[in-house]
C-alpha cells in the first residue's frame, strides 16, 4: 500500500515550519512519529497534499521537571519515556501505559505529542493527561498558548490545534506527596487499541483523605473522557471499598462505548468498572508506598 501523492518538507526550525503551515494551510499535515498518520495515508483514509516533517527540528524532545511542572517535549518518543529516570522515579503511570502502546519498534518512532495531536479517543495518552490534569502547549508564529487538557479534544480527530499551529510541549503539574497513579488497558493482543482503559491519579493527605482524584478513560467515548462523577465521589473522603465501587460504577454509567469487534457495549461498560476500580486501588497503593 502506497500513500497518495504529496509534497514534503523537513524544516530545521519551528519558524520554518510555521511559515510552511502559513503557506499550505489545512492542506498540510504535521508528521511527527508518523505511526498513526502514515498508516492512514497508506489506506487512503487521509491524503494530505503536504507533509511537514518536524523530526529534524532540534529542541522538541526532552523530559524535565521545571517550575512545578513535568515538561515533556512534543517529539519525545514513547521509548524515551520508557527509559527516562524522572519517569521511573515519579511517574509510574507512563511505564504502565507505554508498555501497552503498540510494540517496541512503533514506540521507537511514536511521540507523546503525536499521540495527543492525533485526537483519537482510542489512543492511551489522552486518558493519562486527563488523570494528571496536564496542559498542552500549542505554538505558532504568534507565540505560545497553554490549553488545559479538558479543553483540548474537540471531537473525532479534532483538537484545539489550529492549522497554523504545532503542539510543542506537554506540562504535567508535579504531584505533591502522597500521590500515586496507574494505568491499564484491556487489549486483545499486543498493538491493539484498548477495549477499554482507565488512568487514575490519587493524592491522599496524612489522614488518608483523598485530596485529588483524576480519572481518564480510553476508547469508551467519542472523545477522551474524564470520569468526573467518579472523581467527585473520592475527593474529600477516605477512599474505602464502598466509594471505590461507586467510582467504578459511575465511570461505567457515564462513558459511551460503541459495540465493535472488541466487545459489545455492556461488556465494555463492565470492563470500565473493573479497570477503574483496579486502577484506583493501585494508585492508592502507590500513594501509600511513597508516603
Amino acid at each position: 500500500m502506497i500513500p497518495a501523492t504529496f509534497d514534503y518538507a523537513a524544516p530545521q526550525s519551528l519558524e520554518e515550519a510555521f511559515s510552511l503551515l502559513e503557506q499550505h494551510g489545512d492542506e498540510a499535515k504535521i508528521l511527527a512519529g508518523g505511526h498513526s498518520l502514515i498508516p492512514m495515508m497508506k489506506l487512503r483514509f487521509a491524503s494530505p497534499e503536504f507533509l511537514i516533517d518536524i523530526n529534524n527540528i532540534p529542541g522538541l524532545s526532552y523530559i524535565k521537571e521545571e517550575d512545578g511542572y513535568l515538561k515533556i517535549g512534543a517529539m519525545t518518543r514513547e521509548s524515551e519515556l520508557e527509559t527516562s529516570k524522572v519517569i521511573h522515579a515519579k511517574y509510574p503511570i507512563f511505564l504502565d501505559a507505554t508498555k501497552l502502546i503498540a510494540d517496541p519498534q512503533v514506540r521507537n518512532m511514536g511521540t507523546l505529542g503525536g499521540n495527543l495531536a492525533h485526537g483519537d479517543a482510542a489512543n492511551d495518552h489522552p486518558a493519562l493527561m486527563m488523570a494528571m490534569r496536564a496542559e498542552v502547549v500549542i505554538s505558532s508564529a504568534e507565540g505560545h498558548r497553554a490549553v488545559p487538557i479538558d479543553e483540548f479534544f474537540y471531537g473525532f480527530y479534532m483538537t484545539a490545534v489550529q492549522p497554523n499551529e504545532i503542539l510543542t510541549e506537554i506540562r504535567i503539574p508535579v504531584p505533591g506527596p502522597g500521590t500515586g497513579n496507574a494505568y491499564h488497558k484491556l487489549e486483545r493482543k499486543v498493538g491493539d487499541y484498548a477495549t477499554a482503559g482507565a488512568a487514575v491519579q490519587i493524592t491522599l493527605d496524612q489522614q488518608g483523605v483523598c485530596t485529588y482524584a483524576g480519572i481518564g478513560l480510553t476508547n469508551v467515548n467519542p472523545t477522551p473522557m474524564r470520569a468526573a462523577r467518579s472523581e467527585e465521589v473520592l475527593v474529600g473522603h477516605k477512599p474505602d471499598a464502598e466509594r471505590i465501587e461507586l467510582a467504578g460504577q459511575y465511570a461505567s454509567e457515564d462513558c459511551s462505548p460503541s459495540s465493535d469487534l472488541r466487545g459489545d457495549e455492556e461488556y465494555k461498560r463492565a470492563m470500565v468498572k473493573v479497570l477503574t476500580k483496579r486502577m484506583i486501588t493501585k494508585a492508592i497503593e502507590r500513594a501509600h508506598s511513597k508516603g
Partner: peptide
C-alpha cells in the same frame, strides 16, 4: 504492510523500526 508483523524491521540510526511505516525521505 500495516506495522503489525515486524517482518520489515530494520535499524534506523541504531533503533529498530518498521520500514513499511516510514517514508524513505524520513
Amino acid at each position: 504492510d500495516t506495522s503489525s508483523c515486524g517482518a520489515c524491521t530494520v535499524l534506523l540510526n541504531g533503533k529498530s523500526v518498521k520500514s513499511c511505516t516510514i517514508l524513505a525521505v524520513q
